[in-house]
């Protein structure tokens, strides 16, 4: 699948923002006054920046409100509804802490749950697609949720929690990559089943239907740079998990935390790029590529 920068930015930034807001909502940290303003501001900022980036890749962003209507069937619609609900319910909690120094904790917890459900809905947009076997697996929501929680722990400066979560994120990545490598073969789709000609013999593409490119090839048959996948996996694992963990263990205080956050975000972006670039869609079979 084409690793569109807007979608990579959207899923990474909104994941981090929602993770941070979830930690704030659960009351793991209860900032007040200016500090609360900055912290909630960061959470809202990241989430809204992500949502804005996602609107960029729409053909008709001006109709985006329609995406709130089909929540009973569509995960994309659920994501829209849940993200709006999470940000709205979090607002009185945030405002209370910023201006009065206290707020109803119950509201924060509800908002935090909505934040995590939003991340789950984002993951399910990908995990529901049977056409992309690598995504169509329980490790997809696992990676998205673990990443949001880890990022939230780091951004809310919960060093101990972050140290506990970072190894789990590494495990989630490893499972997603290793189990994902087998998924396409397990689904059993080949050019033979795609054309129905498999029963007659071995099948290969003789002539593509068009000499130029098209939407399908640009969007769903992305084969560039997959050969670097293994190196990129290592880079993602080091930057997102190992380096931040080492920094938190060895150095004290803010400098370590800041460096850990930067490294973690760079690692996440690499992993998210791979999430798209490595995913193979069944339509590639018709073009003799995957």
């Amino acid at each position: 699948m084409h690793p569109a920068p807007s979608i990579i930015a959207f899923t990474t930034l909104s994941g981090l923002g929602l993770g941070l807001l979830a930690f704030l909502g659960f009351g793991v940290v209860v900032p007040r006054g200016l500090l609360a303003f900055l912290w909630f501001g960061l959470g809202y900022g990241l989430t809204l920046a992500g949502l804005a980036a996602s609107a960029l890749h729409l053909g008709h962003p001006e109709r985006a409100l329609r995406a709130f209507t089909q929540w009973s069937t569509s995960w994309l619609s659920r994501e829209a509804v849940l993200s709006a609900a999470a940000l709205l319910v979090m607002a009185p909690y945030a405002v209370g802490l910023v201006f009065w120094g206290h707020a109803l904790p119950g509201v924060g917890v509800v908002a935090a749950v909505l934040c995590l459900l939003t991340v789950l809905a984002t993951a399910m947009i990908y995990a529901q697609l049977r056409t992309v076997p690598r995504w169509n697996h329980w490790t997809t929501p696992l990676v998205f949720l673990t990443a949001a929680l880890t990022g939230g722990a780091l951004l809310s400066t919960q060093t101990l929690l972050a140290q506990m979560l970072l190894p789990w994120l590494a495990v989630a990545f490893a499972l997603h990559w290793m189990l994902g490598d087998r998924q396409f073969a397990r689904r059993g789709s080949t050019l033979g089943t795609a054309t129905g000609l498999g029963a007659l013999g071995s099948t290969r593409l003789l002539e593509p239907p068009h000499t130029g490119s098209n939407y399908l090839l640009k969007e769903m048959v992305y084969v560039v740079a997959r050969r670097h996948a293994l190196k990129l996996r290592a880079i993602a694992l080091v930057l997102a998990c190992i380096l931040p963990a080492l920094l938190l263990w060895t150095l004290p205080g803010w400098p370590a935390l800041t460096l850990a956050v930067i490294s973690h975000i760079l690692g996440l972006l690499t992993a998210r790029w791979l999430f798209f670039a490595e995913a193979e869609h069944t339509v590639g079979l018709y073009y003799g590529q995957r």
Binding site: H57, P61, A67, L76, L129, T131, L216, E219, V283
Partner: peptide
């Protein structure tokens, strides 16, 4: 008139039967 051009339906189709018009 209601399509926002998100492309998700094209991702969901196994056969490449949907194309977003540029």
């Amino acid at each position: 008139d209601a399509c926002i051009g998100c492309g998700l339906c094209a991702w969901a189709c196994p056969y490449g039967a949907r194309e977003l018009d540029a």
